[in-house]
């Protein structure tokens, strides 16, 4: 269940569309739910979002499964989404992916046993000129090198320890 504050946000989002077109709020609400409820969308979460918009569960599932940013399984606290498309490949994204695999001892699509890190490969994120790159949470990490990857991993570990 969303907090009072988030429910107000939900109302504000629905008000952006004409009467009766509240289904348009589905993707924004799924983003909100994913942020709020542990970084992924469980069936319960999806049903809840559907109930807020008065649409059937299947209308939510078919959308949630279409878009690659919605995680339908739990992911680590820190999700490394590394771009592997042409322009990044030309600038060494393959080596960066290999480096992360070796460093975290996981394969693509896997999560470290401590639940901290998940590695995912993604297609072009619109940072081709600043390659290689990855998305971490809300932001992009660009011009990646092995040293930068080390620093990012250390940064995540210390943040996790602080909590």
């Amino acid at each position: 269940m969303f907090s009072e504050e988030k429910l107000n946000k939900v109302k504000e989002i629905i008000a952006r569309y004409p009467e009766g077109k509240q289904k348009s709020a589905l993707i924004p609400l799924l983003h909100l739910a994913q942020e709020e409820f542990g970084g992924w969308l469980s069936p319960e979460t999806m049903d809840y979002v559907g109930s807020l918009l008065q649409i059937t569960p299947i209308e939510v599932y078919e959308v949630a499964t279409f878009y690659s940013m919605f995680n339908l399984k739990p992911v680590g606290k820190y999700l490394f989404e590394v771009c592997q498309t042409g322009p990044c490949m030309l600038n060494g994204s393959d080596q960066i992916i290999d480096y992360i695999k070796q460093k975290l001892k996981i394969g693509v699509g896997e999560t470290t046993p401590d639940g901290l890190f998940t590695l995912k490969t993604v297609e072009c994120l619109g940072a081709c000129g600043y390659a290689p790159m990855m998305q971490l949470g809300k932001h992009f990490r660009e011009h990646l090198t092995p040293e930068k990857v080390d620093a990012i991993i250390a940064e995540c570990r210390s943040k996790a320890n602080a909590n």
Partner: peptide
């Protein structure tokens, strides 16, 4: 006029 920002969710 109102301008609204709508986010997609990963689909070229």
């Amino acid at each position: 006029l109102e301008i609204y920002v709508q986010r997609g969710a990963g689909a070229y």
